[in-house]
Design a binder for these strands. Structure first.
Length: 505
RNA sequence: GGCCCGUUCGUCUAGGGGUUAGGACGCGUCCCUUUCACGGACGAAACACGGGUUCGAUUCCCGUACGGGCUACCA
């Protein structure tokens, strides 16, 4: 019988959760949903030196905003395997227990080397032109550990409270083969794997030990994580094997990385010219916050949609999917092997698609707070009509302001390019005719304005519409002109037109 | 450097032993439009290279190049 699907997202609270992390969480979530399984949030806070205040809460907030809700875990009501924070799980002695099991079976050992001694070893090896200096089957013979020291000396050291770590005893030359759901069979020789530290000198487990213990204890069926973990997977295979748990081992899936659009490498929060974090992140160690997708105007649905299609596709030409649709469609077979460069331009397009799905009234409501912050108020009807006219041109709600602010406050300067190109000595007389004619319009509506203008053209020849637009709005582009004039209202249009004409000859 | 993973338009990708190599973003042209967009139509744009295997390879295999990851008592 197949194991119940149970997957986990297991970040360490060492900073804000960036978009790559969110995507890993997303794929875990989608896989769990697809198979009616469980999605767990576990906090891997075993490195006390890198702990960052607020990071854990940020992770919870970010997942919540995205709609990627764990059904077990920190911040989501815990569950049958509580606690879900490794620093708390350590209290039960569970990691030490598994480490002891490995020591007793001869698969792990105590190492007493100080960090200075380790540095020295690396320097010595580098000087000797060893290509990959590491603590391994060969080099451990020259170090201070329970394999080289006399038994009574080891005992004395342990009893005297000397600092030590527990290391995995990796065999010297052994093929380690494992199957990755996404990549297929991967083979690595154990000579490439170092004697990984399992238990640190502060008593905390390392990631390598802790995640295995927890995955076993929490009955995790699939370990889905980023590609950066692929090189350490062989060590993990060994740990499962030495623990006698190879059969219980979760299936492995290493996701391709999200790469920087320009330049190389994975996305870096410092250099990126686009948001990297789902929500704004203020690192307590830094002065400036990093602006998030949310604060940049992205809908969470759009953000999730963008992430889902980075490294995965449904196999047809469709691109717009809700979280539920993604969950129904998701499959590791359709996850790519190669890294995906993030395209900020396409991200904007996705948001635009979602924005267009909103009603004019919804958009008006979303826009209202921004308008109020400028000290401007308009009726709901006015704003809904404004949004109706503008919505085809914007990617984000805040662009209603950036692209349509002239509706609310007349611009002082008229578009110079258009004026230079189109305004001539006959223009003033012509647009004064327009002004006069508009004054007579009593039913100020799109169609009436359109017809009035047509009649003027019939009587006097071509009257440039863009020029009229600039005279009234100041800008060269915008929504349908007569719709816009109808929205502005007769008084406003005549006032603006009069003011512009007054300044020109 | 070593090890591991990867490589289809600029980017995200579909496809897969015989295809006009498909879609999307972006870009360009045209249509609609006296303005601005949307929309529609069209276009430029890709199988990294070299060897095999094969009647035939972009597709399978091997090399090379390139890209990425890892190389901590960090995850």
């Amino acid at each position: 019988m197949e194991k119940r699907v149970r997957v986990r997202f297991a970040p360490s609270p060492t900073g804000g959760l960036h978009m790559g992390g969110v995507r890993t969480a997303l794929f875990n979530y989608l896989f769990a949903k697809k198979h009616g399984g469980d999605f767990i949030l576990r906090i891997e806070d075993t490195d006390q030196t890198r702990f960052v205040a607020g990071a854990e809460q940020y992770i919870v907030d970010a997942l919540t905003w995205c709609g990627i809700k764990p059904n077990e875990g920190v911040g989501f009501g815990d569950g049958p395997h509580a606690p879900y924070r490794q620093s708390e799980r350590k209290e039960s002695g569970i990691y030490a227990k598994y480490a002891q099991q490995l020591i007793d079976a001869g698969y792990a050992y105590y190492a007493f080397d100080s960090s200075e001694e380790l540095d020295e070893m690396r320097k010595r090896l580098e000087a000797a032109k060893v290509v990959a200096p590491q603590y391994n089957a060969v080099t451990r013979q020259n170090m201070r550990n329970s394999l080289t020291l006399p038994e009574d000396e080891v005992k004395r050291l342990l009893e005297s409270g000397a600092k030590y770590v527990v290391r995995l005893k990796v065999p010297r030359n052994e093929e380690i083969r494992f199957e990755d759901i996404i990549r297929g069979w991967v083979t690595v020789n154990s000579s490439q794997v170092d004697d990984k530290v399992l238990l640190k000198s502060d008593g905390m487990p390392t990631y390598h030990l802790a995640h295995i213990v927890d995955d076993i204890e929490m009955k995790i069926s699939h370990a889905v994580r980023g590609e950066e973990w692929l090189p350490s997977a062989p060590a993990h295979i060994l740990i499962y094997r030495y623990l006698g748990l190879e059969k219980e081992m979760p299936k492995l899936a290493h996701l391709p990385l999200i790469l920087n659009p320009d330049g190389n490498g994975k996305i870096s929060k410092r250099e990126a010219r686009f948001p990297v974090f789902p929500l704004s992140w203020q690192d307590p160690r830094e002065a400036m916050p990093y602006v998030g997708y949310k604060e940049s105007g992205y809908y969470p649905e759009a953000f999730v949609n963008i992430l889902a299609l980075l490294g995965w596709n449904p196999g047809n030409n469709e691109e717009l999917f809700s979280l539920d649709e993604l969950a129904a469609l998701f499959d590791f077979e359709r996850v790519n092997k190669s890294g995906a460069k993030f395209d900020p331009e396409k991200a904007k397009w996705f948001n635009q698609q979602y924005l267009r799905k909103h009603s004019d009234a919804d958009l008006a409501n979303a826009f209202k707070p921004l308008l109020h912050s400028k000290g401007i108020a308009r009726s709901d009807a006015f704003l809904a009509e404004f949004c109706r006219l503008m919505k085809e041109k914007v990617h984000f709600v805040h662009e209603f302001w950036e692209q349509g602010h002239y509706v609310f406050e007349a611009k002082e300067v008229l578009d110079e390019k258009v004026m230079a190109k189109k305004w001539n000595d006959k223009s003033k007389a012509l647009f004064t005719l327009v002004q006069d004619s508009f004054i007579t319009v009593s039913d100020w509506q799109t169609q009436v304005l359109h017809d009035t203008f047509e009649e003027l053209v019939k009587a006097h020849g071509k009257i440039d519409m863009q020029l009229l637009r600039v005279l009234i709005t100041g800008v060269a582009g915008g929504p349908q002109l007569f719709d816009l004039l109808a929205l502005l209202g007769k008084d406003e249009v005549l006032a603006r037109l009069g003011k512009s004409l007054g300044k020109l000859n």
